[in-house]
Each structure stands twice: as structure tokens, then as C-alpha cells.
Design a protein around this nucleic acid. Structure first.
Lengths: 134, 134
DNA sequence: CCGCATCCTTCTTGATACTG
DNA sequence: CAGTATCAAGAAGGATGCGG
């Protein structure tokens, strides 16, 4: 299990066309990460459910090239997104929301509504807890 | 913004009764972490929606005292769980699932079903992707 | 344009010992 | 029993440079 290496960052996560996927591969973990749901959402509202890499990058505020690439690779690997590569010059790559990708977004609607309805109360609870403070 | 300290771990996250909450405080981030949903789930199926700290700890396989404490503190702060402290000897503490805690579990049902239905296909997609590559 | 490599920082989790 | 404190390690995210 390679317990040998000391505590530096891993910096695994890719190499060549077939990258090494994230160590944490649970579905919920992926949905909880910083960018994945945003990527799925942007694709779902795009015409033809497709967007170029650069379009995604400019629509998602604050994402870096590296993190967008990683998110897309993991989504592709899971079958939630399809990658279309056009070997032109300069190259063009489009990402398309797959059936399963649309499905998981629907499955998230209930949670989405709940959060919209309850976030104010959660934030109030946090304020109260913090004010009671140390 | 205190950029001074070099790249060692933070080890923030608590101190005294009022701990310092996780920096990432989005609801989805919390749900994506390793233990929170498990804790909510165990409480929801317990009689009276209540369990002692030690009961939770023994029911959730692999969780450490530290991580259980942190998960419960964050849930309490968000108003999803209520902490009942009994100053006996030895002390007893019970955690109760609050209304909002039950609500978020219901909101997660759709996602839960989706994952059950689609996990086999996701795993197959992962195998195919990994096999195709180097 | 798209994306990989490298380096670095921050966040999250774990192991262990100790206490009211 | 139910925590706190401390140390350590692993994983996620960001900045930047290079290349087909």
C-alpha cells in the first residue's frame, strides 16, 4: 500500500492522455468538490448540451485550466460527460453532457430546492452559535 | 490574510468549546465529506432520533473520536443536530436529529436512489476508460 | 486552443496521548 | 464518557511555464 513516502503532496492525478484519477472516487465526494457540479450545470443549460473547453473556462468564474481539465476527465471517466476532439489547427474540443450526466442533475434537484429554502436558517443558526462564542 | 506561514497543515478546526469551523462551509462540501451523512443517517434510524456519542462511535465503522466530534460540532452549528448534555458522572451526551436534519435527509433521497440505480454503470464506465489507456 | 508538468499552499483526516 | 491537544500525513486546489 506504499506507506513509505512522507507527507508531501501527491501531485498524481494525471499523466498522458489517461490520467490517474483522484484517490477519492466516491460519487458523493465528487459532487462535494469545488467545481464538478458547476461544470455539469453549465453544460446542461448550453445549446445542444455542449460547450468548448474555453467556453466552460470563461463561464465558470475562478476556475483554473488545471482544475477544469481534472473535473472534465473525471466526469468523462465516469460516463457523465462525453469528450469530442476535433484535430484542427488550432485544436478544438467540445464537451457534451451525457444521459447519465443529465440524470444526476435531476437527482440533485430535490437537494437544490432544500438548500435554497433552508440556507437562511442554516446561516442564522451559524451566527447564533458563533455569537454564543468563546 | 496571513500568507506568512509555510505549507504545513493547519490543524485549525477546533479549540475550546467553540471551535473554529471548517474553512469550506458550503452545504454541499459538508455533505461530501467523509462522515457527515453517515452521522445523520444513524441518528435518523435510532429510536427517538437520538443516540449517545459512544453509540454513534461504535455504530459508524472506522470513525475516530476526533472526526465524530468535529462532524457533530458542525452539524450542531448548522442547526441540523441538537446536543443534549447531562452533567452526571460519568458524563452523558446525547445527539438528536433536528427538524432540518431530517429534512436534508429527505432531500437526499432522490440522489440516493439515482446512485443505487447508476453506480454499476459508472463503475463499468470507469473500467472501460482505465482499460483503454496506458 | 487545449492541456500537461512542476511546485507550492491549504484543507482534511488520522494516530495518539491526556483530562474533567 | 466525552471530549481536547498535538503531531503527522495525505489529498485538493492554485500559479506558472511549456508544448503539440
Amino acid at each position: 500500500m506504499d506507506k513509505s513516502r512522507p507527507g508531501r503532496p501527491n501531485d498524481i492525478a494525471e499523466s498522458g492522455r489517461h490520467f490517474k484519477p483522484y484517490p477519492s472516487n466516491g460519487v458523493c465526494t465528487r459532487l462535494g468538490d469545488k467545481w464538478t457540479v458547476q461544470v455539469l450545470w453549465r453544460l446542461s443549460v448550453a445549446p445542444g448540451r455542449r460547450l468548448r473547453f474555453s467556453a466552460l473556462k470563461s463561464e465558470i468564474d475562478g476556475i483554473t485550466q488545471r482544475m477544469l481539465t481534472l473535473a472534465l476527465r473525471n466526469l468523462e471517466r465516469d460516463g457523465l460527460v462525453v469528450r469530442h476532439y476535433f484535430p484542427e489547427v488550432p485544436p478544438r474540443v467540445e464537451y457534451e453532457l451525457a444521459e447519465m450526466g443529465a440524470g444526476i442533475l435531476s437527482a440533485l434537484e430535490g437537494l437544490n430546492f432544500w438548500i435554497q429554502d433552508n440556507l437562511p436558517r442554516i446561516e442564522e443558526s451559524r451566527r447564533a452559535y458563533d455569537d454564543a462564542g468563546p
